[in-house]
Design a protein around this nucleic acid. Structure first.
Lengths: 132, 132
DNA sequence: ATAAACCATACCAATTTTGTATGATTTATA
DNA sequence: TATAAATCATACAAAATTGGTATGGTTTAT
């Protein structure tokens, strides 16, 4: 399926909100403003931190802040962070073991061609483009 | 998720095989040559017929034949036929009721922008490009 | 010390996807 | 005209994925 997952869409909502903020935003603040549950927000923020899309400050008065400029953050980056690399990667030569298994097969070529085109398209859309 | 479904991939295998054939190919012939089960082949062919990507002849000695030139058949057409229009459509103005519900919302705008880009990318890849 | 806040993991429910089974209809051919 | 080859239509169960929540641990400002 080639459609945006709910989680990826939520993450764009959150990132759009963060791109308007000067200071740190906590999970509870983000949840309240976006109408999402705190648990869901927390789950997404963890993934965005791991992908180094946002930076986090722990402890009281902590929170999250964008680590990248909105114009330098692509939809592809966000989707990869949320849905995992398998959602998008085009099986490049430096890939992991799984990729080698189907290398040289016709199936691998097709996946590479199609996923490569999708990947490319998504990397040409920035968060700034999405923030309407 | 932005990856090719198994069914869509199978359909490309089948269509690639058909693009090499001069005459009709039956479900059992296609199944044998592609190593897929007859039931799975039958299911896919039905969808391709409904989408007018292949034409079918019923009865004994019947079978399937490509109804479009490989260079005029896009990956987007194939995916839409197999996974349904929701896999790809960008929520256009002439769309069905479901689309109207989220119209004018920020979510609709994002979906439109992202899915539109993916849709466009997939329509620029033809079956001929995939047939390696 | 305490409370605010992030971190990590595990888990279940809901949905979607895959794959198969069954029976009906069409048609070439002996 | 009976038979077999073939597509058509629907329904359904198993498997995988996704969505969402809960629980407990760790960090840090006050």
């Amino acid at each position: 399926m080639f459609k945006l997952s709910k989680m990826a869409d939520y993450s764009i909502v959150l990132l759009s909100r963060m791109s308007k903020a000067e200071d740190l935003l906590s999970t509870s603040e983000l949840a309240e403003e976006t109408q999402l549950s705190e648990a869901t927000v927390a789950k997404i923020m963890r993934l965005l931190v791991k992908a180094e899309i946002v930076s986090s400050i722990r402890g009281a008065q902590g929170g999250y802040r964008l680590a990248v400029l909105p114009e330098n953050l692509s939809a592809g980056d966000i989707i990869t962070a949320i849905d995992g690399p398998k959602a998008l990667t085009a099986c490049t030569d430096d890939g992991a073991g799984e990729c080698i298994l189907i290398k040289n097969s016709a199936m691998a070529m097709r996946l590479q061609k199609i996923n490569g085109a999708v990947k490319n398209a998504l990397h040409n859309i920035s968060l700034k483009d999405l923030y309407v």
